[in-house]
Design a protein around this nucleic acid. Structure first.
Lengths: 211, 211
DNA sequence: ACTATTTAATGACTGCCAGTCATTTTATAT
DNA sequence: ATATAAAATGACTGGCAGTCATTAAATAGT
């Protein structure tokens, strides 16, 4: 009796279709201006149906965020050349992240949004959020490379892999958030955001490499 | 004819009163749940009057943010002991910032909100925002101490004061944003946010101090 | 093939609220 | 005392997230 399974697949497909529609609408109008009716119309469904698949507008937003996250993972994977020295790979990843924040600013702004909200206060299925962090976060890739870096002696070994990876990732993500769309503001202080990134790497590398 | 001046003062006073009310209401209900009517009622004024003084709910939010920023400046000033070595003063400031993000989480969440929004897209008087960055940002204090640190040889001198100060500030603010309210999430990766802060300083100090 | 039952989809409706604006009240000028 | 200007009011509008009673479609039972 494959009916259960087929229904399961169909349900998943519909969910994807709605997320597709949401993605387009959010990109076109921006999250705040977009309405659930817009999304429903785009997906050729009624508003009520959208709510059968996503419990809130925020959950829909989280679904789009996850797609952005997935894109970042792909970009990382494409960029990582495991034949190159670890330091180079790490810098390459950072560079991909910077590129992501610029070329896919709409996605990156979702990163900013969810970093800045108290996830537990959002009307999103807890399971959905946990599944993301357990299974779908791009951080996992960073962990792999940092792990290799500590093993091959590139990175300092007085901090645990978990800790060093978490720290480097958080610093990078945090910095990108603070710099994003702030060119003009940094110019008030006679600084360009590009330079800040460069000096970040100057400081971090000196601080994180071995010896 | 001091009527002009008196009126000016009264207007400013009323603005403060409304901001006071907003601060209380936002703290009690949270920004999203709070309504302008709540604020008006708290200030014993009508909704329309609130809009005579603030052009949008966001502008009211920005006014409260500025109070938080002012509090942070005061906390910095109280903590800075210019007789102590620069490295110690810098760490002391970082420690105050961490304390601020915890003990005044409602204010800090406004920092997060405005860092994560595109300021130019908010319905806030441009002049208000510029005035803040030019005259009221706590970053200025960081700049002073970093400047001293470069002069007295504590900090590396191959980066300009503006640049090093901007970088250290952005790293710290970004990291606090990423860590805030994320204890549980970091635990998924076997890391505590406290440790991340410690290792941040390990890395930054090694990377930013001279030689 | 027909009927009953379960599952999916619909869209009119509700409640809420940011922001507006014609009207009223209060303060100042003449 | 009256005219004019400035400040305050609150009823009203438009828009939208989320709900739910109703309808339609799919599946199961006989």
């Amino acid at each position: 009796m494959g009916i259960q399974e087929r229904k399961e697949r169909e349900r998943e497909q519909r969910k994807q279709d709605i997320a597709d529609a949401a993605q387009k609408v959010f990109r076109e109008k921006g999250f705040d201006r977009a309405t659930i009716d817009d999304v429903a119309q785009r997906a050729e469904l009624s508003k009520g149906t959208v709510y059968l698949y996503f419990k809130s507008k925020e959950e829909l937003q989280f679904a789009v965020f996850q797609r952005g996250s997935h894109l970042l993972i792909e970009m990382f994977q494409k960029a990582i050349d495991r034949n190159r020295p670890t330091q180079e790979v790490l810098l390459q990843m950072a560079s991909v992240f910077i590129e992501f924040s610029r070329k896919h600013a709409d996605y990156f702004e979702l990163f900013m949004f969810f970093q800045s909200s108290n996830l537990s206060k959002l009307n999103i299925e807890k399971e959905t959020i946990e599944d993301y962090f357990y299974n779908k976060s791009p951080f996992k890739l960073v962990f792999d490379i940092v792990s290799r870096g500590i093993e091959d002696g590139t990175l300092r070994n007085d901090l645990s892999v978990d800790l060093l990876a978490s720290t480097l990732w958080s610093q990078m993500l945090g910095l990108l958030i603070v710099l994003h769309n702030k060119k003009e503001i940094f110019h008030i202080f006679n600084v360009d955001t590009e330079e800040v990134l460069k000096s970040h790497f100057e400081i971090i590398l000196r601080g994180a490499l071995k010896n």
